[in-house]
């Protein structure tokens, strides 16, 4: 991992007009009318990382569930390019070319008893190079696995191995490889570096940043402030299911964010 060098973060600005992803007044209530998400509104532009900072349990999990289609929201709208995504099923959301990196990699992200090569096509298994009509093309699945294992330096590199045999960091690489290989327009990443060592964390950061520079829109949810501060172009602060402030990267620092996250007041 020593060959990962420090790549200076480029100064390319986010595209000014092109809003790729927009959430309008999104709310989610429990059946007992207890609010989990309150009137969330934000938008992400092309070539932009929007960081979502917040103490764990401020609604990140619920937001991920709503955006990925696992759970319908109570009110509000979600737009991707000019298509409305509100309360679509996970199949329909994934059909739009949205990559989602879940925080619970062993529960939501991977099927641990699947072979490595099988996990590397999960969600794309029904699409064209891997599947023709209904029969799987094992040769293409194998070459895809070889390519991604090399590109993302997944260890051990045997595509026939059960995914459960991999370390947490390598499992995370499997998810990243799979999600980013479909060339998505939007990446929703929740705690992408949880449980990784320093090298793994650096790897993920560089990856997300190069994706940003390639023109993707990225929603980064993380409870690690350093990560949010280092990567984001703008930072939204989530507290109690509400966005209480959206700061630009220049005006945000660790004290200010911490104060907002915990007390809800600006310094």
């Amino acid at each position: 991992m020593a060959d990962i060098e420090w790549i200076p973060l480029t100064e390319e600005k986010p595209s000014a007009e092109e809003v790729i992803f927009r959430v309008e007044n999104l709310s989610l209530f429990t059946p007992e009318r207890f609010p989990l998400l309150k009137n969330l509104s934000f938008s992400i532009r092309r070539r932009e990382i929007l960081g979502l900072a917040g103490v764990a349990g401020s609604g990140q999990k619920e937001l991920l569930e709503v955006l990925s289609g696992l759970r319908p929201c109570t009110s509000g709208k979600v737009w991707y390019h000019n298509r409305e995504l509100t309360n679509l099923s996970p199949e329909e959301v994934r059909e739009q070319g949205i990559a989602i990196i879940p925080d619970e990699r062993q529960i939501l992200g991977l099927i641990l008893d699947f072979k490595l090569k099988e996990n590397l096509i999960l969600g794309q298994h029904h699409r064209s190079p891997y599947c023709r009509y209904f029969s799987l093309n094992h040769r293409r699945i194998g070459t895809n696995a070889q390519r991604l294992i090399e590109e993302f330096n997944i260890q051990p590199s045997n595509p026939e191995l059960e995914t459960a045999a991999l370390s947490g960091g390598n499992q995370q690489r499997v998810i990243l490889a799979r999600e980013l290989s479909q060339n998505p327009g939007l990446i929703i990443a929740s705690e992408p570096t949880r449980g990784l060592d320093l090298a793994g964390r650096r790897f993920v950061h560089l990856l997300l940043y190069s994706q940003r520079n390639n023109g993707k829109a990225i929603l980064l949810m993380s409870s690690q402030l350093e990560e949010v501060l280092e990567l984001s172009d703008r930072i939204a602060v989530l507290k109690g299911g509400e966005i209480i402030s959206i700061l630009s990267a220049q005006e945000a620092d660790i004290d200010r964010l911490g104060m907002l996250m915990i007390t809800g007041r600006n310094l």
């Binding site: 059909e95 529960i107 939501l108 799987l136």
Partner: peptide, 26 residues
């Protein structure tokens, strides 16, 4: 089970229904 997309989905749902659903398997 092992050479069609239906079988792939059946096994995915059987081994981890949550991850299967998250990835867009009905």
């Amino acid at each position: 089970l092992f050479y069609t997309k239906f079988g792939y989905e059946v096994r995915a749902v059987g081994l981890n229904p949550l991850a299967a659903r998250f990835a867009g398997v009905g």
